[in-house]
Amino acid sequence: MKLDEIRIPRFDAYERVMHWMAALSFVYAALTGLALWTPVLYWLASLSGGGFVIRGTHPWSGVLFSVVIGWMYRRWAKTMYLDADDRVWLTRLDKYATHQHGALPPSGRFNAGQKMLFWSQVATGLLLLVSGVVLWFPEEMPRGLRLAAIAAHPLAAIGSIGGILVHIYMGTAAVPHSMRAILRGWVSPEWARFHHPKWYKVWRDSANLR
């Protein structure tokens, strides 16, 4: 069999479902959250039944997102720690952005950018959950806590949405075939060798290829 007919499994069904549950709940929470932020963006509420409806649904979509983030943490945290190559990679982010891949140390299953996205989403997700619960029950929570949460929640959301916007660009336009990887689960050997050389070598050795 020729190599370009080989499909390397990248995300199993479990991981794909996990990713898309996170994605859908995130988009819902982000759009309704923007509507609840300011009257300027309140029109977004009409995408989902109006302000009174999203006041009820936004917190629950956040809870769902947090649960999935916890699930991702269980599944991926171990592969997300930065190794020595990743640390060098991060200092050469400009080379990555300008397609000078020859100047980059090899990446494993996830590159350092993906790992940083993971950790930033874990951190902002936790902050959003805690501050969100405080804002959810205004009459039960002490005022000082609510005043902190009312600034922390949008601050975490700005970081989180900013990161996801870059993630969406990377996954759609910037890296061809990555969308197929997360939707159908497989990549070509050429794709794996270029984007994730260390991960590719593990696959090649285990697949008993010379």
Binding site: M1, K2, L3, D4, I6, H99, Q100, H101, G102, A174, V175, P176, P189, E190, W191, R193, F194, H195, P197, R204, A207, L209, R210
Partner: peptide
């Protein structure tokens, strides 16, 4: 990003199984 244009020059080309 394009593996053909931006690939690692020192890397071996594809193998055959």
């Amino acid at each position: 990003q394009d593996p053909e244009k931006h690939g690692h020059p020192e890397e071996e080309p594809t193998h055959e199984a």
